[in-house]
Design a protein around this nucleic acid. Structure first.
Length: 950
RNA sequence: GCCCAGAUGGCGGAAUUGGUAGACGCGAUGGACUCAAAAUCCAUUGAUGGCAACAUCAUGAGAGUUCGAUUCUCUCUCUGGGCACCA
């Protein structure tokens, strides 16, 4: 037989043409079990396809191909997310129409994608810039407008005064204009908004119902920022006014030391006449107003504020009068724009520290000793204790090393100096007495008492009571080392010595003292759950239980707030969907009648935004001036366009019926394809918070309109890792480290590139590109190619059959789990075994080709065809593994002595424990090691190992 | 600062519910073929010691649980991603 070498160029071209002609990858209309696999449709940039596109496309291609072979009616569609800035900027520079540039780019992308052999259904291709597509984007917007979800509001935009252009956030990073490098200003502009916040709660809650990767859910939840709390009113003394504050920690109310308002809060102006330092307050408000968002957050997070002198708020639970401040770290848009401050919040704590405001603790850290838990029914006895930090002038502190009994020596306590407080004694006296008794030191200077006491709860066995110990930490400096004699009975329990602070911190092993030293090293707010203190009748209650009780007691309202803001939907740009609204002086904002859709983008001479920041459309008076659809009077068109998140918010719906002229998709097609959502959607983590959330929002809206059958668009969402350049940084044109897939396809072939990208590393993690490593997968495919010369009509060996069936099982599972790298690896092992074998049965070789075919569709199709198959391998039935062949008759048992490997034995699968143990002891190496040792026990793990312990 | 993910040979990475650490691939070294080179094939390849059998050490650092830890718990360091005064 003459050896024909593997010529990828010939094979790939040949089969791509055949697939195209026979349309084997086109989805059937609506019949049978369906699978809808989705990838994020690409933005067709001028640079052409990126190796990263290929990684994610191949992954979903493999899954789709497997489903097709499993008998599913598969929809794996593709399209173009073609509105966007790069194309527009290119048009500004060159004057070439964006539509023409887009056409060129999509042609390139289409050709490149076809060259990679993806099994897309090309008959359903969509393009967001095609008027027949964006007609429906506009239509959905109008439905939202009619439901009051689209509205106009003043917001700030990034404005470059030099270029006179509004900038997207990503063009204004760091407050610098992306184009000219000059500073960016804020400019107020009326913009269209979408009320996504109305869906915030559902967007959060319905995440429970979908199968997204946990990290995706977490990121979405963080972005939505649901927070359950309460609104609590503070009366203002001598006025009818009240301040409504928002808090999630109503349990800290007794500790409120001030009420703080956002500088923009409306009450400030109302209270003007009573504020005695108005000038100072007004200055601060002005200063804040001038700051940009960036300045307001960047300034090292240093807290600043001004007290509203003459104003007092009344704590609704304690009746205490507290001061009222304004501060710019309180955001007017969030919550109620007002808070009560307490020391159990990091920001409030810093604020109090800066302005030296008196604070008091309302929550104690609570330590429950799990080794000595409370015993039910025993008396609870509360006791006050002091823990003292005693410092020498070199900074060393005194630590007690308790003498444990032998068996619990390891866990003997190491503590600060500790002691009880006797009746009639104040804390400092008690501490000084204890220090003298236990160490003999008499000359100490009291420095401070830490503002946080702690509470410990444990069962005190020697007293037979449940103990509550409230602990105060006092700091002393040692004046000199003068000591008095210490009673022997004190020293029998512990030694003491001075050690450095860092040693003390690592040695000390009781939670109270660990907390105190931590606070001493770095004072910070205690913000966790604990037990209430100095809180009237709530003292002693756990914080999470006290919360609702206190809200109730002060008549607070339980509310939920979200970080999510409404979506700014206007862009002052040309290359986007025109917003289909007409401004009429008489009738206001009037929607364009549906029969007039789409509102097409007119041709313009210049794509440059206008000097006043309006879109280039504003300068085309012929287009702008129109008639009001309602009163037929003179009116103007909206000149803002939509962001490019618009078209991508619903594209997966259009794919199911992309040619429909009457609806965005027919009910029937939607019910069939979206009946349980898109089955599997893979995409990048970078789209988790914007695209994914936006499209879920649109989908929910369409669901409410009864236009789609499900609450959620995507049943399952996974993510891919990025491909970085060889040096581990992001690939970018400016760094000149990009890899052009064109060259790789030319030199190695699409099959090699696909296999390499699946093999290079775990799919969900980022990996560095390595051109050197591509030869591995290439050699693998060449070996696959050569195996055909071994194909025989005879049966393969039993061993080879077993490995084949194990591989079928593993590859199938790996594809489902997106562990493509180990799937490829197991096929490489199989090929190695096939090479060792004299012959391979025809049927076995074919089965192998079938499981390889999703990864390398061209070479497998060619070999399949050469073996006489008339139909495509890609519509053949996915091979099943034989369960009997998966099980080994002989298994390996590892023999260890004291956990160290000493040998291995081979036994029959159903050998019993006795036999295996006996055999293990026969091992020479084991015998040698065991000489003169007394065996304590033998551990047998079924089917795995034996560990002999002496 | 907070949240998420990660750290394993020269490199990319494997490793079931805790059970032989380094599968598979790249690279490297030696050999075969060749006039020669490429390609291909064979062998070796974590470190240290030893002629060897083998022993010791090794999964970012330190502690803990366990007969046994890359895997579980705690503390810390570094890297990547996200959020950033959200009460």
């Amino acid at each position: 037989m003459k050896m024909k070498s593997y010529d990828h160029k010939k094979i790939e071209k040949k089969w791509q043409a055949v697939w195209d002609k026979k349309k084997i990858y086109n989805a059937k209309n609506t019949q049978g079990k369906k699978f809808y696999g989705l990838i994020e449709f690409p933005y067709p940039s001028g640079a052409g396809l990126h190796v990263g596109h290929i990684r994610s496309n191949t992954a979903m291609d493999i899954i789709s191909r497997k489903r097709r072979m499993e008998g599913c009616n598969v929809l794996y569609p593709i399209g173009w997310d073609a509105f966007g800035l790069p194309t527009e900027n290119y048009a500004i520079k060159t004057g070439i129409q964006p539509a023409i540039v887009t056409k060129q780019n999509t042609d390139t992308f289409r050709r490149q994608l076809k060259e990679l052999g993806f099994s897309f259904d090309w008959s359903r291709e969509v393009d967001t810039t095609d008027p027949t597509y964006y007609k429906w984007t506009q239509w959905i917007f109008l439905q939202m407008f009619k439901k009051g979800l689209a509205y106009k509001a003043k917001t700030e935009i990034n404005w470059c005064p030099k270029d006179k252009i509004g900038l997207a956030n990503e063009e204004a990073e760091g407050g610098v204009c992306d184009r000219c490098g000059g500073p960016v200003e804020k400019k107020e502009k009326e913009q269209w908004m979408l009320a996504i916040t109305k869906y915030a709660d559902r967007l959060d809650k319905d995440l429970d119902e979908v199968n997204y990767l946990e990290k995706i859910k977490i990121q979405q939840r963080n972005w939505i920022g649901k927070s359950e709390g309460a609104e609590i009113d503070f009366k203002i003394k001598n006025t009818p006014e009240k301040i409504t504050t928002f808090t999630t920690r109503a349990d800290t109310l007794y500790g409120a030391f001030a009420v703080i308002l956002a500088p923009e809060h409306e009450l400030v102006e109302k209270l003007k006449s009573q504020i005695t330092n108005w000038k100072e307050v007004a200055d601060y408000i002005n200063k804040t107003a001038k700051k940009t968002d960036i300045e307001r957050t960047v300034e090292d997070k240093d807290k600043s504020g001004v007290e509203l002198k003459g104003i007092k708020a009344i704590n609704p639970i304690s009746g205490e009068e507290i001061p009222v401040w304004i501060a710019d770290f309180i955001l007017v848009q969030y919550g109620t724009g007002a808070v009560f401050a307490d020391m159990h919040d990091e920001r409030d704590f810093q604020f109090a520290k800066k302005y030296k405001l008196p604070v008091h603790q309302s929550i104690m850290p609570l330590f429950i000793d799990k080794a000595h838990p409370w015993v039910d029914g025993k008396e609870v006895v509360e006791r006050t204790a002091i823990h003292a930090v005693i410092r020498k002038d070199n900074g060393d502190i005194l630590v007690l090393y308790w003498k444990g009994t032998e068996e619990w020596k390891k866990n003997a306590p190491i503590t600060l100096l500790i002691g009880g407080v006797e009746k009639g004694e104040n804390l400092i006296e008690a501490a000084k007495r204890e220090i003298k008794e236990e160490t003999g030191f008499v000359n100490l200077k009291f420095i401070e008492q830490l503002p946080i006491n702690t509470q410990s709860r444990f069962f005190a066995a020697h007293k037979n009571v449940n103990r509550i110990a409230n602990v105060t930490c006092l700091i002393f400096d040692l004046i000199n080392e003068e000591r008095v004699e210490v009673d022997e009975k004190e020293t029998q329990f512990h030694d003491w010595k001075f050690v450095s602070m860092s040693k003390a911190t690592s040695d000390i092993n009781i939670p109270d003292d660990i907390y105190f030293l931590g606070y001493l090293n770095k004072p910070s707010a205690f913000t966790e759950e604990g037990v209430l203190v100095d809180s009237g009748k709530y003292t002693g209650i756990l914080s999470n239980e006290a919360r609702s009780k206190i809200i109730k007691a002060v008549g607070g309202k339980v509310v939920t707030k979200f970080k999510l803001r409404d979506w700014v939907f206007s862009r002052q740009r040309y290359w986007g969907e025109p917003i289909p609204i007409i401004h009429c002086d008489k009738c206001g904002y009037v929607p364009v009648p549906e029969k007039d859709l789409p509102i097409k983008l007119p041709k313009v001479k210049s794509y440059q935004p206008t000097d006043n920041g309006e879109s280039p459309l504003a300068s085309i008076s012929k287009w702008v001036n129109t008639k009001c659809p309602k009163c037929k009077g003179k009116a103007k068109r909206e000149t803002d366009t939509m962001p490019n998140w618009a078209g991508s918010s619903w594209y997966y719906l259009r794919y199911v019926d992309s040619k429909n002229k009457k609806e965005f998709a027919s009910k029937k097609a939607l019910k069939y394809w979206i009946g349980n959502g898109v089955d599997w959607y893979n995409g990048g983590m970078e789209h988790t918070t914007l695209h994914l959330l936006y499209s879920r929002f649109w989908h929910k809206f369409l669901y409410d309109m009864k236009l789609v059958p499900t609450k959620e668009p995507y049943m399952k969402r996974t993510s891919h890792g990025m491909i970085l350049a060889e040096d581990g940084v992001k690939m970018s044109k400016s760094l000149g480290n990009t890899v052009d897939p064109k060259d790789v396809v030319k030199n190695f072939g699409a099959d090699t590139l696909r296999t390499y990208e699946m093999f290079m590393g775990p799919f969900d993690q980022s990996v560095n590109w390595s051109t050197d490593s591509i030869v591995g997968p290439r050699r693998f495919l060449e070996r696959v190619w050569k195996l055909k010369y071994k194909v025989s009509k005879k049966k393969s060996s039993k061993e080879l059959e077993k490995i084949l069936h194990k591989t079928i099982k593993k590859v199938g599972e790996d594809i489902e789990e997106m562990r493509f790298n180990t799937g490829v690896s197991s096929m490489m092992i199989l090929v190695g075994e096939m090479e060792k074998s004299e012959i391979i049965a025809m049927g076995d070789y074919k089965k192998f080709l079938q499981i390889l075919s999703p990864f390398a569709p061209h070479i497998t199709e060619e070999l399949w065809n050469e073996l006489g198959e008339k139909k495509s391998i890609h519509i053949s039935a996915w091979p099943k593994f034989d369960k009997k062949l998966i099980i080994d008759d002989e298994i390996k048992i590892v023999v260890q002595v004291n956990g160290k490997l000493k040998g291995e034995i081979f036994v029959n699968v159903d050998a019993n424990e006795e036999y295996i143990k006996a055999k293990a002891f026969e091992n020479e190496n084991v015998k040698k090691t065991l000489i003169g040792q007394e065996i304590k026990k033998v551990i047998y793990v079924k089917g795995r190992l034996i560990n002999i312990v002496f």
